[in-house]
Write a protein that binds this DNA or RNA. Sequence first.
DNA 1: CAAATCCCCTGCAGGC
DNA 2: TGCCTGCAGGGGATTT
Length: 270
Amino acid sequence: MPELPEVEVTRRAVAKLVLGRQLAKVATTRASYFFLTPPATLRRRLEGRVIEGLLRRGKYLLAELDDGSRLLLHLGMTGQLLSSDAGRPDAHTHLVLSFADPGPSLLFRDARKFGKVRWLPPGKSDPRLDKLGLDALAVTGDHLFDASRRRRAAVKTLLLDQKVLAGVGNIYADEALFLAALKPTRRARTLTRAECARLAVAIVSVLEAGIIAGGSSIDDYVRPDGSGGGYQDQHRVYGRGGEPCPRCGGTLRRVVIGQRSSCFCPRCQR
DNA sequence: CAAATCCCCTGCAGGC
DNA sequence: TGCCTGCAGGGGATTT
């Protein structure tokens, strides 16, 4: 699902919902790799805490608690954070955070369970966070140029590598490459400085447009209030293999790069 | 290091 | 209608 824009839209809405509130009851489902911290530990550590901050790092969310500990969340492919005003817990709801006040609780649903939850003790980080590269909203041409020099692989693979750039996923990679007129299969090391600069501008541009539109809702992603985002209506190439290119009218191609489907215009993108 | 492969899990669309 | 296959916004482990 969720790439940087969807996670950021989620962060802003969840922040409004939870900041300053004290957790009263934490309901969990059975242990699984969804829970990097065992459910019982999670309950013991969270109940009674006040949520003081909610940050985003790439596609991760980090809730700051009043004892200095933090709660790390990742939405995986199908994760949703929902206000209880927008839906009732169901078979795919793995976590329900209820508060001491009578306001709505927060639900974490995830059909495929690729999402993650981990409690971090005060002062402790997580290797997943430590490995993250530059946040994609702060990318520069120089950063892309430097990161691509030793890469024989496709530029699209580079964009999806969270150690290089944190936050870009399959949708926004395809969209940014189209905007920058660069073929996703282009070997990363062959990019010029000027092309990297163009690509950096394109990445920031599509991510910001995605945030403004409320994210891309395809199958699963919804905002915490239950409403869908609107950026899927602005996708120029993602998921459009075989359809006409919005710029030249030629036929968009679909290829597979690093196990991910990729759509592009062979005429506009070099 | 970089890169390729497989795996985690569930739901859905499309073909037969 | 049912069964089967392939595919899906993510990322980690392992191997070469």
